[in-house]
Design a protein around this nucleic acid. Structure first.
Lengths: 109, 109
DNA sequence: TTTAATGGTTTAAAAATAAGAACCAAAAGG
DNA sequence: CCTTTTGGTTCTTATTTTTAAACCATTAAA
């Protein structure tokens, strides 16, 4: 079945994204960034307060979130402002994957 | 904002599911189960062949997939037949979460 | 041009996850 | 009742992930 080969790729391409959003610490970071409706972006130290983690730990999780294209940041002097990416293409990709899987399961019922 | 508290819960409730489907070995198991369009279910030894892993390793991953409500199984004597759950409610929950997140991001633009 | 602030990186430790060998239990078949 | 098949569960080891202390580089401020 040709479809399943495609599905396998869709799945593999989303691994990083899924692992990124599966972790509860990173979920807390994402929520904090969603809460920032002023949309200025949050700094690393803002996030250490939210999560009770050290700066290197936050930095590490932000790196994972950046690699998964979930967050982006801008520099202003020495300050880094993190925010959720404006177009997270993985969201739509994941939605399509879920539809694919549902379709196959329903077909086999 | 009341919505974000709800979003936080939706996220937390899906952690197990997201971690389950983020792992590439477990993705391989899911694909194999999707390929079983006869829908008889696959046995542990069928899956060891697909993935080149030991039986305890497969057993371990199946446990995680069961806890995430992704797979189910039936016994026939000593034989266990694993299959994808017929109604994976987490699929719809995740779809709604993605919509929620998109909505908030778009609103803030 | 010092001094302070900001924050990434490296390093090392701790914790969690994954893996297979060995073991155990249950059911089928002789 | 013994033997075989099947497959879950320890148990131990290896790997990966997470964490914070220490370190370093950059920019702003004094």
């Amino acid at each position: 079945m040709k479809n399943l080969e495609q599905l396998k790729n869709e799945f593999a391409n989303l691994s990083e994204f899924l692992i990124a959003i599966g972790d509860e610490t990173r979920q807390a970071i994402i929520i904090a960034l969603l809460e920032d409706n002023a949309c200025n972006g949050l700094r690393v130290n803002d996030l250490t307060e939210v999560t009770d983690l050290s700066r290197p730990a936050i930095s590490h999780h932000l790196k994972i979130l950046k690699q998964a294209h979930l967050v982006d940041f801008r520099r202003e002097g020495t300050k880094n402002y993190y925010y959720l990416s404006h177009n997270i293409s993985e969201i739509e990709q994941l939605r399509q994957l879920l539809t694919h899987v549902s379709d196959i399961i329903d077909k086999e019922q």
